[in-house]
Amino acid sequence: MSTHELAEVERLRRHLAQSRRLYEVRDDGQGGRHWQEVGPKDFTPLEPEGDPPPFSAKLFFFAERELLFRFDGGQFYSSLPEVRPQAIFGLHACDLQAIAYQDRFFAQDPHYQARRHATLLVGVECRESCSNGFCSLVESGPLVGDGLADLVLVRRDDARGWWLRVGSAAGAEAIRELRLPTNLDGCQATRESNAARVALAQLHDRELLDGVAALNAGQVSADTWETLGTHCFGCSGCTQVCPTCSCFAPLEQVGASGEVQHERVWDSCLYEGFQAEASGHNPSASPGQRVQRFWLHKFGEPFREQFGHYGCVGCGRCDRVCPGGIGVHGVIGEVGRP
């Protein structure tokens, strides 16, 4: 694994965009910020800092609506996505950690893996904490963990140029033609100071760890969960934007000719119907139980053991999207209070 000097990050982007579809987060001028395709002739400067976009990169691999198969009345036809090489440019460490989590969950899923294998991940290490983030407390940032990205950008302290860390053979191959000089002078020191700065800014969020401990110790009362559950509108926003949420439901549509299209679509465990059984029995019948279940999946030790990481990467998206104010700070931040 090598580290290179990169004077102009946009040059790298233009180069990568020549042979693949490249996506970067941009403002749309109407209040939205999202991953948008950027062409090889785009000279817009990269804006690496700031809050993450509403959506992580999960939708590039775990599609929100995916055709699995068709049935024409006689025969089933499986459907695999048509994939083209693509690059996701400017991923923060938290989102890269989430992709690694999803990679494990969907390890055997051909749809996910088809897209994933066609994708080059280009990370950027944050120098400042974003407004709701707490990556340093859940060990998902701000530094990009080894093996989580093909390429990682580290901005120099003087903001004049970058280091480019190569994280995989695919990453090395992607930049080979650029012939970037190797240089790691000062890179590690800068990274360590970035990590320290972000951790310091996130220090006030240590109470979240008390909440995680209380959650795992079963110290949160059913009443507390029900109070939180009253704040849950069942909108599904948290599970939509959570980069590690991976639940899906079937959708079958019958066409005019009788052909059946079987899709899988993003589901949400905050819906009452998510766990409802045909008998009418529901193991998570109350909103409080559903909220509890969701957070156990994010911070429960058994899940951490299974996936090697918390199901929460500290991006803070749930805080922003929750109309009831029960994102991670509203729940985990509260349940740890004595």
Binding site: G31, G32, R65, C235, R320, V321
Partner: peptide
């Protein structure tokens, strides 16, 4: 195939309800 909220929107400020999320 889906929708996303707009963090900078003056009314909804980056949030949606279950209906909005189900637009597709």
């Amino acid at each position: 195939v889906g929708v996303e909220p707009q963090p900078g929107h003056p009314v909804s400020q980056g949030q949606l309800c279950a209906k909005g999320w189900s637009t597709s």
